[in-house]
Computed example of a mutant assay.
Amino acid sequence: MTFPLRIGTRRSKLALAQSGMMQRAIGRALGVPQAEIETAIPLVEIVTTGDRVQDRRLLEIGGKALFTKEIEEALLAGRIDVAIHSMKDVPAVQPDGLCIAAIPEREDARDAFISRDFASFADLPLGARLGTASLRRQAQALALRPDLKIEMLRGNIDTRLRRAADGEFDAILLAVSGMTRLGVSEHIREKLSLDDFLPAPGQGALALQTRAADIDAALNDQWAAALNHAQTAVCVAAERGAMTALEGSCRTAIGAYALIENGSLRLTTEMLSPDGSARWRRVGELASAPQPATEVDARLLGQRLGGEVHAFAGDQAVDPATLDG
């Protein structure tokens, strides 16, 4: 593979910010002069179905894969050479012919509480209106506060922040990582507890995807090795292993978060009923001795814990709105 090395990205402001970060990082890894990076490694903007349809929850229009489908099609067709995705949008199974080449170091994985009038989630009044399109965030919020009124909120971050500032909602929930990358973290009133609001699998991480046939090409091998963050990749493997076992999609409220401390991997994963009335959780660890955990080991841990959660939860955790027809 030679230059130009074309990067496929969604057209949203956040996607372009994230892809621009990776564009510059790939350029540096390949020794491209700063002034030549945009020409040697151009961004190719692609509008996805998930971006076009903003008035319905993702589960109603085909799930979160609608943020990746058109970009992956462009990658398979050879119109682009690298795809940049938010890892939490990437389905558990890769399409034939594609692979994840690198996972850079993760940003803060927590959820952010944003409100014009209230300083924290705990300060919300009885019956407050909480804006989110995430079934996971809905279930976790209702598990703590069943009195809340959950209202659907989609759109880009700027749109959501504007609607919150206009008082359409008493509060909204977003990912800290996206707000940080966009430079709008001053709107965060509270970074929510990882225990109360266990993140989506892969939240805060990015996925750099390529064609499997190109993974060993000299250019790809060079930037992939430079950008891949081994600890993040292991943690994400554990979380996505749990997601696979839990059949994670927009139809189920699931969370998973892995952390490496003192060389040991600790994974927490859970599934909730959509109304938050039931919550099933498992925690497990991989010891560091004699060797640090591998991605394979981490994925197996995730699959085991996720399988245990799924066995207890069963169909109780599926959004009933998706079962008709």
Rank of each mutant, 00 (worst) to 15 (best):
K191W: 06
A40I: 10
A317T: 14
P33A: 03
G127E: 04
W223F: 14
L272T: 03
T244M: 03
I84A: 09
M179W: 10
L130H: 06
I46C: 08
D195I: 14
G27W: 11
L323A: 12
P201Q: 00
L135F: 06
L198Q: 02
C250V: 02
D221C: 09
A200H: 05
L301S: 06
R189C: 13
M1T: 12
A298E: 03
A237D: 01
V318N: 07
I26E: 02
I114M: 07
G131N: 01
A77L: 09
E186R: 15
I100C: 10
G248R: 01
N220Y: 09
S120G: 10
R279E: 00
P33H: 04
D166N: 05
L76H: 03
R279W: 14
P4N: 02
P199T: 02
A224S: 12
D147V: 07
F312N: 00
A217Q: 11
Q316A: 15
G263Q: 06
I26G: 05
P42Q: 07
A92E: 09
A289C: 06
L208S: 03
L182C: 13
I150V: 14
F113N: 00
L173S: 09
D324M: 11
V318P: 09
D89T: 14
N156Q: 03
V176N: 01
F121T: 07
P292W: 14
G8T: 10
R304Q: 10
I150H: 02
I215A: 12
G263A: 05
D221I: 08
N156I: 11
D117N: 10
V176F: 13
V309C: 11
R56Q: 15
V82T: 05
I254L: 07
A207G: 06
P320C: 08
E38W: 03
A237Q: 01
L76Q: 11
A165Q: 08
G284E: 04
G306F: 12
T9I: 12
I114N: 02
S86N: 12
I157F: 15
A253K: 01
S120D: 05
L66G: 00
G276F: 10
E190S: 09
Q140S: 06
I37D: 04
A171M: 06
L301R: 08
E72G: 06
I26N: 04
L14K: 06
A35K: 08
A164S: 14
E239F: 11
V32C: 04
F67R: 00
L208V: 14
Q231D: 13
M21W: 12
S177G: 05
